[in-house]
Nucleic acid binder design. Structure first.
Lengths: 150, 150
DNA sequence: TAGGCTAATTACCTGAGCTAACTTTCATAT
DNA sequence: ATATGAAAGTTAGCTCAGGTAATTAGCCTA
């Protein structure tokens, strides 16, 4: 059986991880402001829409773990930018279906190239083994959040 | 010699890492709102002050990679909460020196226990080896940001 | 000692999260 | 058939945390 990790170590790791994430997230936000015109939040939502195909605002809010009014605002912004389309939901008159359009796809492709450049340029300075560590960390972070059911 | 990591892999890793960080950061912010009374940003600054001893607002802004007015506001908040003290800088009349006080140290200790609980409780469900991966990832994220000199 | 640089602050803008309250629509129970 | 309750979306209004521009006060140097 695997050795138990002492709680003090876990707290320490948690604390360091938290600070690293907060600061990196801030750096990402700043980077975004300069280049692309879309914030990390907006980019994440656009990517979610792209992955989902046709999706309701509520579902998006659930995916992004954000409350519905927040998603309403973000979608309004993406729509203003002309990156998404909305059609009425034929199955539910209260709802609408959101989809990415051609401009959105292009923007997303460009963003993936340019905006990941911030992290990618830094990843490029690391060993392949360190990149692998970060890649696995990304999966772990996502998995850690999965069993939240609030 | 180590195999070169192809750029497409780097972009992919960068993209996944970015989304994971953005979403985790959001989860942390929500968690913070409930419990402790201090946001992740405020916590990070208080921890920075604690590490630094006596430090000027400008230096803190540099450490946290934030503009000075932003730091002014955050410090005002920490001061209102009675967690830090300011003394005039004997060497420079324009500046002041910031230090954590006893209440700040206590709060920080409590925060480290309580606020890391969010991450710690999730870390607890992972294998020790996975925790180790995240621990190394935290170091790597910090190192990656270090060579920014804008 | 005049002029320019730097530290800090103030005022104001934006984005992104939240809750509360409202409208419209759906589903259901009577 | 209709009344009631739940759910989707929005609107309004709050907060925090970032930013820029402009101001004030102090430092330094030619």
């Amino acid at each position: 059986m695997a050795a138990r990790t002492p709680d003090t170590d876990l707290s320490d790791t948690a604390s360091r991880l938290r600070n690293a994430i907060v600061r990196t997230s801030r750096a990402l936000r700043q980077e975004a402001a300069g280049e692309s015109g879309l914030s990390p939040t907006q980019t994440a939502v656009l990517a979610s829409i792209s992955r989902s195909g046709l999706v309701t605002p509520s579902e998006l809010a659930r995916l992004e773990r954000v409350k519905r009014p927040t998603m309403t605002r973000t979608l309004a912004c993406l729509e203003r930018e002309g990156l998404i389309e909305r059609t009425p939901d034929p199955a539910d008159g209260r709802s609408s279906l959101v989809a990415i359009n051609e401009a959105g796809r292009e923007r997303l492709a460009r963003l993936r190239r340019r905006k990941s450049a911030y992290l990618a340029s830094r990843l490029r300075k690391l060993d392949p083994e360190e990149v692998e560590t970060l890649s696995r960390a990304a999966e772990l972070l996502d998995r850690m959040r999965e069993d939240e059911r609030p």
